[in-house]
Design a protein around this nucleic acid. Structure first.
Lengths: 340, 340
DNA sequence: TTGAAAGCGCTAACAC
DNA sequence: GTGTTAGCGCTTTCAA
């Protein structure tokens, strides 16, 4: 049997198509009063026929798709998924669907995702950007598409955003390590063009030029966003004679790679090496040892992103929204007093 | 500036809207010949105006949305994302978008996802089902919606499907453990209503009733699909006097929880306890010890699901498709000869 | 309180 | 080779 259409329902209920529309969109409370009997007739016909309004037609006419685009850099970091979870929960609760895409760390793809994918099939976009260099281009595309966008992770480029307070988070991590007496700290950050490395650690390095820079012998290692590379690079780092007594990684996922590398080299954690990371993914509490990490409230970030985006949809003229979520240090087992 | 429409392009190029449509849909090679000059004029106008066809209107008219629905049970098991990755890669390559949804292990939600979400906004659905009991209901919904569906994981219910060869995979795991001399094997499976537990281990248990059942003292533990529960339940299991010498978990994600529990109890792996699991997620090679596991080729499964679904879209009358992907035992560090 | 009808932007059958 | 035109299924003014 063919799918029932609005016309079928109207005929079955003995009313006009407009009336069906009114009932289904609950217009009867406000401007458009509908008699209870009519309403019931329509509802019955809808149930009988198993009628489901066509989202495309509805969208074409109303201008709203009730769909949000979500783009994340890669599919392997669990932190991203926790964000996705927050986004989906909130979006579904509010009656929005999610058109999902991963940019796979290729800037070309990220571009395409934004452009090709969202030919008015979404009302707005939630973007977890991967490439810093992309930002100017991004801005341009966004204005061309005239689609509201909220980015996860804030930079001052006049776009709605939500993110953790990176400098605060970083300071928490550094301070914890310093309190434990660590002076030789290694840093595992993402590639030069990617966001999380720069955002998270750069403010800290900046501050160093003024004061404690001399105190800390920086050992910065850039890794691709895979656990394999985190493993390989930390293996190299830890094989050096002058290896750090503590490592800060830009995310928990990398920290798992470091854990593995340390284990290969018979380096005990935290006795011989402290590790601290960011995110506090679920897994962080189940590694051996459990990870000391700076919690970034992924789910809240995801939910907040939806809220911000919908605010924008409801009011194009809103001032730029910028929400910062506090980061909290979670001390577990991967950090300890430095050995003398 | 308003988004350009087909009419704008037609005017700018000095042709009719139909011609624009022909050019953009590349109809000029086949039935509908278009002169090169016209084609170029149109293409230029498209570029000048930054024209992007409206996916909704196109879909409404053509009946195709170029969008696939993807539903997975929960967002935390990395194996699921690897499947998602395969799905997205293949789908995007073929010009399809992904409408994404997680059923979060609530059967109610899974139902809604299928019904409400996909009111003709997708051409077909890829479903990684979570609840066995849902299958009959599922079948009914599918026929009501008249939407092609492919399930990941096969059961004989007359739906296109793709999955690993579960009995083969299970036999691989069991045989490996038996070869190492293990007789007391514990099983960590998912809740009674969920698919992976039953599919993966049930055929094996069935076979046992006929022969080696006596040899193996089964210790079956049911866990919820969270790493926390896997951890908690294996802690209980391992505290027993008569604890198993080997544990089979239904996925690598659970195995990480077992690793953690063993570590808490100072049980050495693999010396005191062997662990074998399923999936071979990326992480499985970076735990300590690295996991012996039965590789399930998640990415290939995801890609295959898309292929199967598109076959179905192209030919409604195709016989039921059923693709099985061989499972391969990957021996790493979490299994060893049983101690005497 | 309800109905008639226009039209969202596009594709495809048909006409020229 | 190219243009005309009829809808796809819905929402929403306007009229009754």
């Amino acid at each position: 049997m063919k799918q029932a259409t609005q016309t079928d329902v109207a005929q079955a209920a003995g009313v006009s198509r407009a009336t069906v529309s009114y009932v289904l969109n609950e217009r009867y409370n406000s401007a458009m009063p509908i008699s209870t009997k009519t309403k019931e007739k329509v509802l019955k016909a809808v149930a009988d026929l198993g009628y489901n309004p066509d989202a495309r037609a509805r969208s074409l006419r109303s201008g709203k798709t009730q769909t949000l685009g979500l783009i994340i850099p890669n599919l392997h970091n669990p932190h991203h998924w926790e964000i996705v979870e927050g986004v989906m929960q909130k979006a579904h609760k509010l009656g929005y669907e999610i058109l999902f895409s991963s940019s796979d760390l290729e800037s070309k793809k990220e571009e395409n995702s934004i452009k090709a994918l969202f030919r008015r099939s979404v009302d707005g976009i939630i973007l977890l950007p991967s490439f810093i260099k992309l930002y100017p281009k991004l801005l341009q595309q966004i204005s061309e598409l005239q689609l509201p966008v909220v980015t996860i992770g804030c930079r001052d480029i006049g776009i709605d955003c939500i993110g953790s307070i990176d400098t605060e988070a970083t300071n928490n991590a550094i301070k914890h390590l310093e309190n434990l007496g660590h002076k030789k700290i290694g840093f595992l950050v993402t590639g030069e063009n990617q966001t999380s490395g720069e955002d998270r650690l750069y403010p800290y390095f900046q501050s160093l030029t003024k004061n404690k820079r001399a105190l800390i012998s920086k050992q910065i290692v850039r890794v691709k966003s895979t656990i394999e590379d985190a493993y390989r690079k930390s293996l190299e780092l830890l094989k050096k004679d002058n290896r750090p007594t503590a490592i800060i990684t830009v995310n928990d996922y990398f920290a798992v790679g470091v854990l593995r590398a340390a284990s290969d080299l018979n380096i005990n954690i935290p006795e011989d090496l402290s590790i601290i990371s960011f995110d506090d993914i679920l897994l962080a509490n189940f590694t051996s040892p459990r990870l000391t990490t700076v919690r970034l409230e992924a789910k809240a970030v995801g939910q907040g992103a939806v809220t911000i985006l919908l605010n924008r949809l409801n009011n194009k003229n809103l001032a730029i929204q910028k929400e910062r979520i506090p980061a909290k240090l979670i001390i577990r087992e991967s950090t300890a007093q430095v050995k003398l």
